[in-house]
Amino acid sequence: MAVISYREALRAAMREELKRDDKVVIMGEEVAQFNGAYKVTEGLLKEFGPKRVVDTPISEAGFIGLGIGASMLGIRPVMELMFWSFSYVAFDQIVNNAGNIRYMSGGLINCPIVIRGPANGGTNVGATHSHTPEAILASHPGIKVVCPATPYDAKGLLKAAIRDNDPVYVMENTILYNDKGEVPDEDYIVPLGVADVKRVGTDLTIVAHGRAVITSLKAAEILEQEHGVSVEVVDLRSIRPLDEETILASVRKTHRALLVEENKPFCGVDAQVAYLIQSRAFDELDAPIHRVSSIDAPQIYCKRMEDQQLPDVNRVVREALKVLA
């Protein structure tokens, strides 16, 4: 088992899939010659050449649409968005075309496309570059969304996404790109729709995804050390499909739930998770479900305030104690 970064894990996933299947093409702004705006695709052009690793113009509606069209004929494009925030100019392609074509054709067509890139706040770049559209996109049947939090999951989920025959949107996090973790040397995938219990506990379930998992794990440590509370942390990994059973099993064990995400609260992923818990495990709950989300405003530029706008360890601890009270 090698210890590699989240960034290297994503790159390894693409390298292995490029080798495995000659229909896989990497495409996006600055992915080839520039080696990737965030260096995720570094070295792939050199290794695989310009047919497999393709620089696009700044033209998201154009090149994402092109990738979707190519996927209908069996190409498996892995498209990089420099930021998921830029997906908004390609929304018609991403939702109406990739998400609807299978349905509108009565199952005659499928779009095996992957769109990946960072979707996070916390980098001091202001509102236009800090969107987290996982809930927006996952609300469309026909679309799949995953949000890896660790190098192991980043590699396994991206490989599964590339092999998947539906549109899969992989939302990464620039703050996690340098995080390191153990990743197996042998081939593996993390199937979509399988959550992971990142920490086992008995008193409180925290459900989180993306970087909120890392924040929640730190909070769980403090809760144990300073408050003697045993916290279980469920990492969704995949938003749609959603592993409802793992969430419910954990809540049935701990009887208390705190939901943490870096999204804004209104119609966030955790709104769906809260509904799930109350509808199928209401009698198991010993306390109301609480949520910790980003403070409900466009992303603020000021770094000191942005750090507070996002869920931080202190806020998670505070809210957990309320659920436990």
Binding site: G62, I68, A70, L73, I101, S105, L108
Partner: peptide
């Protein structure tokens, strides 16, 4: 739609099919 006859739709949003078409051409060339 009739993909077995190389017919890929049938698209409701004005102009939205143009990028898809370039993708089909891209795939043919690829």
């Amino acid at each position: 739609f009739a993909p077995d006859k190389n017919y890929w739709g049938g698209h409701g949003i004005v102009g939205g099919q143009a990028p898809l078409g370039t993708g089909l051409a891209y795939a043919v060339k690829y």
